[in-house]
Write a protein that binds this DNA or RNA. Structure first.
Lengths: 206, 206
DNA sequence: CGTACTTGTTGACACCCGGCCAACAACAGG
DNA sequence: CCTGTTGTTGGCCGGGTGTCAACAAGTACG
């Protein structure tokens, strides 16, 4: 049996894009299984059936490869935002939360590994990638709750919603990792809190 | 000038506890300044005026030392919980949030470094330390909001409050690190959300 | 005061990991 | 079949970590 993305024949020449994607796929898998420090470039090279030096050739550094992997994992399809129902705030929030929980549960393991930075921690580059992902997510949420028109307090709004993303991540962890909350409970919590954020917190701030 | 915890005389014999604390203090300082991967055991040993091998002697491994350091940083004095005002929910929540923001802002740099796992992040052991800290914090919050008596849904409650801790951390980061929110805004957000969690989310779950 | 014992401390050694780079060889074009 | 391009390899080097036997500071005892 040969794993997908595994070795074919050593030394075989591939198109740069193809080889790059192959290594990246292997890296995504391994970084999803173990924390950053416990995955060596040798592991990745072996799993990809490739010389270790090739990783540096394509990604420069191990961290560079990791950043690419995280970017793949946290990048969410923006299409979903456009097919939200028309109804009132509660309806749209409900749909958004449902969508979020679906996405997260689908590839929960990798997602969990990615959102906490895989363990590199306060590293500037990775922090930036995660922050960018949060920004994208925050903008999607703003669209979903119908506050994307706000010009006045745009920066504060995004900051608040990014903070809400922290709540969403922590809540998802309770559900998927510690299994202390059910999906239904998580759903109620995230919906209620988001509605509160929009209807009460935002108003009290302005 | 000699830094506190710095070298005195090489080879000087100290009581194990004293030496241990000295090294730990140095480690806390350095891990607060730079991420985990950028602090070598050599750095710590030099800063403590000690042979590198001694670190392994006392803490086993670099990660072991780091875990101890994180534990020091995230452990919060439990005394404060007892001197909360008597008033209604809103009053007690307000006081709790004020206390939290005070503590966090006092040593913001080290705290920020600690709560995100500082670097090794997310390996099982460090996850456990952070989780323990969250548990302690969650229990304090439950006392503060007067829900520590609940027996029926105790586990769900704690899980919800731990999720809230994720919100608190993310919000504090927006305030202290990205400076996108003011203290007043953070205060309103955390207070409102905690009240909602207790009054609405918890009720809808039961 | 000298000696032997305990044990905190040291320094060197072995091993692993990541980045670099010159040589190699697979494929295409002539 | 030869030749140029370039994807790929494997070894080298610097740096970091854990281990361990030897060392020596301090202490108890004669």
């Amino acid at each position: 049996m040969r794993m997908s993305g595994g070795p074919a024949e050593r030394g075989r020449r591939l198109e740069p894009d193809v080889r790059r994607e192959q290594i990246l796929a292997v890296a995504v898998r391994l970084f999803g299984e173990r924390p950053y420090a416990e995955v060596s470039t040798t592991d990745i090279a072996d799993a990809a059936g490739v010389a270790r030096g090739l990783i540096n050739h394509y990604f420069g550094t191990k961290r560079g490869l990791f950043i690419e992997a995280v970017r793949v994992l946290v990048t969410i399809p923006a299409v979903a935002v456009e097919q939200l129902p028309e109804g009132d705030l509660a309806t749209r929030v409900d749909a958004s939360v449902t969508w979020f929980l679906d996405v997260v549960s689908r590839h929960s393991r990798s997602w969990l590994a990615a959102v906490d930075g895989g363990g590199v921690g306060r590293d500037a580059d990775i922090e930036r990638v995660l922050q960018e992902a949060d920004d994208v997510a925050a903008d999607s949420i703003l669209v979903a709750v119908g506050l994307d028109g706000e010009r006045e307090h745009r920066d504060e709004l995004r900051a608040m919603v990014r903070a809400y993303c922290g709540l969403a991540k922590a809540t998802a962890r309770e559900w998927l990792e510690h299994k202390t909350l059910s999906r239904a409970q998580v759903h109620v919590l995230l919906s209620t809190m988001l509605v509160t954020l929009v209807e009460k917190v935002f108003k009290e701030m302005s």
